[in-house]
Each structure stands twice: as structure tokens, then as C-alpha cells.
């Protein structure tokens, strides 16, 4: 439903194009500037590196996109990532075959996420509060389970999971691309996705259309939990251990990717392709600043400014064309 507005306005064609592809322009400009400033930027290994570094955030952001489209927010993705990482290592160390570890971890992530959804849908608590509570609860559970220290020693299959490169492309990139396609398909081609968009646009209208609003809410948080679990498996394998502080603060990068990607925080408008761009913009920015040896303290400031700038730019485009 995000692309719809361009079809109805009467502004000049270049305006419509710009408002539709403005985010790509931002991305292209960023690439151009980074290439000019560093000769190490525009290389295949560096691009694969960016893709790999972006993949964990992208996975979380895809789940977050569905939640925000529904008109909610999920602050607990980082903590769910941490606790599922611990569960996965426990399973792995208990000798469960790696396929079983993957399936059980995903199930755990989905289940934990659905608890958020139950509190939102049936407990009628604001998503911000529910997932803020979940953020501290699952971080606490992680610290209890690990006693505050990392769990290492993974099985060879688990170690390989995030570190192989089939056809020369790192496995995290394959995983993120698959998740992108799956999320896009779910949101754009299924009745579930239609329900999410309708619900985010107007909950009352969704109810009057007879949609199973409460179950949709539960499922969307379960979906986000599932994506967090996938990110957990990836990160645990990459770090060769489950860290008690893993994923801390990741919810902010995920939300930033969604918002920079043009999805409305009010729900109902946006999509996962935009989120991919948003995640890439943030990823490229991080990478370029590292290559340029920008002081880590300044990096945070620049990142924040770019997020606000990208949003202002989009607002400027859409307000002129509306």
C-alpha cells in the first residue's frame, strides 16, 4: 500500500519519481561519497563484508517491519536474540543434531515473540510497554542462564553455519536474502499480510471487515520473534559463542532501518524492500566511517544525523507531491 500514493497525485512526473525512488538516491549518494573518500570502499570483498555485517540487523528489521506495519513496535528483539542464542548453545551442547537445534530455536523465538503478542492483543497493554518489559525480562533470563559469562564450544555444524560461503556469497547474506523474499511474500501475497496492512491502517476498519484482529497481532509478534531467533543462530555461529550481552541495543538499529526505509511508525504504510535499503544505508554508513577511521564517538552522532536527514528528505519529497 506504500507505493499507492504516487498513483493518485497530480504533481510533475519527476516529483513522483523522486518521491518513489528518493531512498535509492540517498543510498546512491552515500555510495558515491564513500567511494570518493576511500579507495578501499568500492571493492567486492568490502561489499560482501557490508552485506554480511548488515545481515543480522536486516533479519531483525524484517520482523520489525511487520510489527510496525501492524501499528506496533518490538523493543525486545535484541533480548530475544540473546536468550535464543543461549538456548541454541544448550541444545547444541546437549548433543541435539544441528537441524534440530535450528528448528527448536526458531520455535522458541516464535513462542517468546507470541507472548508479547498475547499481552498486546488480550492484555490490551501498549506494545511499547509490553516489549520494553520483555526487553529486560529476557535479558535477565539470559544473564541468569549464562551466569553472566559467554557459552562457547559449538559443534562443527553450528560453527560452520554462519561462516561458509556457498557460491562465493557468505551464508548470512543468503539467509538475509531468503528472509527478505519470505517476508515480502508474506506481506504482499498472503491474506495474513493484507490483514497486517489493514490493521495498521485502521484497527476498527480491520475489525469491521471481520478480520481475526487479535490472532493477527499475536502472529506478527511471533514472526518478529522468529526473525530474532534466526538472527540469534547467525550471530552465535559468527561469534562462536552465546554472549550474555549479545544483541544489546540492536532494537534501535532495527527500528532505524525500518523508519529510514520509509515505513510509517503509525502503521499501514511501507514495506520490507524499503527496510532492506534502510538497513543497507546504515550498514554502508558504519562501514565507510570505519574505513575512514572516524572516531567511534563521532560515528554515533553522524549515524543519528543521517537517520534524521533521510527522514526529512523523504518528508520533503512526499509533502511536495501530496
Amino acid at each position: 500500500m506504500s507505493q499507492a500514493h504516487a498513483r493518485t497525485d497530480r504533481s510533475p512526473a519527476w516529483r513522483q519519481l523522486l518521491s518513489r525512488y528518493g531512498l535509492w538516491l540517498v543510498f546512491a549518494a552515500l555510495l558515491a561519497i564513500a567511494s570518493l573518500l576511500s579507495d578501499r570502499f568500492l571493492t567486492v570483498p568490502n561489499f560482501l563484508n557490508i552485506a554480511r555485517q548488515t545481515s543480522v540487523n536486516a533479519l531483525l528489521a524484517f520482523g520489525m517491519t511487520a510489527v510496525i506495519l501492524k501499528g506496533g513496535i518490538d523493543l525486545s528483539v535484541g533480548s530475544i536474540l540473546a536468550v535464543v542464542g543461549v538456548i541454541a548453545v544448550f541444545l547444541d551442547q546437549a548433543g541435539v543434531p544441528f537441524v534440530g537445534t535450528v528448528l527448536l530455536s526458531l520455535a522458541a523465538g516464535g513462542l517468546i515473540g507470541s507472548l508479547n503478542g498475547v499481552m498486546v492483543a488480550y492484555g490490551k497493554i501498549a506494545p511499547f510497554i509490553v516489549t520494553l518489559a520483555a526487553l529486560t525480562i529476557w535479558r535477565g533470563v539470559t544473564l541468569v542462564l549464562t551466569d553472566g559469562s559467554p557459552l562457547s564450544k559449538l559443534s562443527p555444524a553450528f560453527q560452520a553455519f554462519g561462516n561458509v560461503s556457498p557460491l562465493g556469497v557468505p551464508s548470512p547474506v543468503w539467509l538475509a536474502l531468503s528472509a527478505l523474499l519470505a517476508t515480502w511474500f508474506l506481506l504482499r501475497r498472503t491474506g495474513w499480510g493484507r490483514g497486517i496492512y489493514a490493521l495498521g491502517s485502521s484497527e476498527d476498519a480491520a475489525r469491521f471487515a471481520g478480520l481475526p484482529v487479535d490472532r493477527l497481532k499475536v502472529s506478527v509478534y511471533a514472526f518478529s520473534g522468529l526473525m530474532s531467533a534466526l538472527a540469534a543462530l547467525l550471530l552465535t555461529s559468527r561469534l562462536n559463542s552465546a554472549q550474555p550481552t549479545a544483541g544489546s541495543g540492536f532494537e534501535l538499529d532495527a527500528i532505524a532501518a525500518v523508519v529510514v526505509g520509509g515505513t510509517s511508525l503509525a502503521g499501514g504504510r511501507g514495506g520490507v524492500i524499503g527496510t532492506l535499503l534502510g538497513a543497507l544505508i546504515i550498514g554502508v554508513l558504519n562501514n565507510a566511517m570505519n574505513l575512514l577511521d572516524v572516531n567511534a564517538f563521532y560515528q554515533q552522532i553522524v549515524k543519528g544525523l543521517v537517520i534524521v536527514g533521510a527522514l526529512l528528505f523523504e518528508r520533503f519529497l512526499s509533502s511536495r507531491s501530496a
Partner: peptide, 25 residues
Amino acid sequence: PEDRKAEGAVLDGTIRENIALSSLP
């Protein structure tokens, strides 16, 4: 429903998405 904008139509959606919304199955 009586309140077209709040309860009736999904204003962010297209005509197609609205008309099909109660018949998705």
C-alpha cells in the same frame, strides 16, 4: 459501519485491497 473513514474504509489501501478484505479466504 456508520463512520466511513474510521471504521469502514482502509484509507491507506487501494480499492482492490479494500473490496477483497472480507473475502480473502
